[in-house]
Amino acid sequence: MEMWEPMLSKLMEGDLNLSGVWISEPKLDGERIIAMREGDNITLWTRRHVESSYKFPEIIMDLEKNVKGNNWILDGELTVPGGFRKLLRRNTEDKLKISLLSRKIPATLNLFDILRFQGEDLTGKPLVQRKKVLLDAANQGEHIRIIPFKIVTTESVKEDFEKALKEGYEGLILKDASSKYEAGKRSGNWLKLKRSETIDVNVIGATKSTGSIAFGALILEKDGQYFGKVGTGFSDNRRGEILNLLEKNKAAIDVDLPDDVDVLLTTRPLPAEIKANEIVKGKPRAPVWVRFRWA
């Protein structure tokens, strides 16, 4: 089965000045998913090409029931009540636990784009046209939701952003209504407005400590590449809590680490935020820990 790389958004920098027609969508606290159907086979794929359909039977059932056709590719964000931290609890291989968790922590696939419908490639069409196809092809269901969107102007974005934060969202995603779908690209046609000037990263492990503290630093990844380490911004007690979380999410990684990184353990990617004075040669200078993205 062919793999699809999702289109990514850029963090909005400088003064916002929108020209043309733009739409806004709320920024959700979940995991990006590409959903695909070929005939009777429906699959869910993460950004790292991990097939996770069997972990979310409620999503598969709703897609089969609420999306027309038998050949399509959808883009969306997978969420559960309580945010990404609760979503991590759905990461199990145990069939009995999967069945129980699908009822105890039910997931929702929040759809916002469609890349193919009935075999037709839609990535070259403007976003507004893809949105229309999506609305025609998919119905809302118990575990399927179409992410709301609206036309915005430079003047209305601030009010929409503040409203989104009050409603519990992480911010806004702004998209050029005429833009094509640029698979695998972090494009300026999609802009991300967040609650603070932070950098999105993934924690993929921790380094050994030279003293009595739980670990030395957190190992970071961004866009599939090693992104340095962060060792400041948390107390010793907080380090212990973080290490417990990391141990529960141990996993092998496919990111090349420098030889001087003294690895304590590696984990599945855990979304987080850091602050840094600047980016130098692709790495943050003087990074400071902010939070895991669900915190």
Rank of each mutant, 00 (worst) to 15 (best):
E2D: 12
M3F: 14
S9G: 13
M12D: 00
M12A: 14
E13I: 04
I23D: 08
E25N: 02
D29A: 02
D29C: 00
I33E: 04
R37D: 05
E38D: 13
N41P: 00
S52K: 09
L63W: 06
V67K: 08
K68S: 15
G69K: 12
T79L: 10
P81A: 11
F84T: 07
R85G: 13
R90G: 07
T92E: 09
E93D: 15
K97I: 03
K97A: 14
L100F: 11
T108M: 13
L109I: 14
L111T: 05
K132C: 02
K132G: 03
A138W: 04
N139A: 14
G141F: 04
I144P: 04
R145E: 14
K150P: 00
T153W: 12
E155A: 07
S156H: 09
V157N: 07
E159I: 04
E162P: 02
A164K: 02
E167K: 15
L174G: 03
K175P: 03
S178R: 13
K180A: 11
A183I: 06
S187K: 01
R195V: 00
T198Q: 11
A206E: 13
I213N: 10
A217I: 11
L218D: 06
I219P: 05
I219W: 07
E221Q: 14
K222V: 01
G224I: 06
G228H: 01
T232R: 09
R238L: 05
D254I: 05
D256G: 09
L265N: 06
L265H: 04
I279G: 03
V280P: 00
A286S: 12
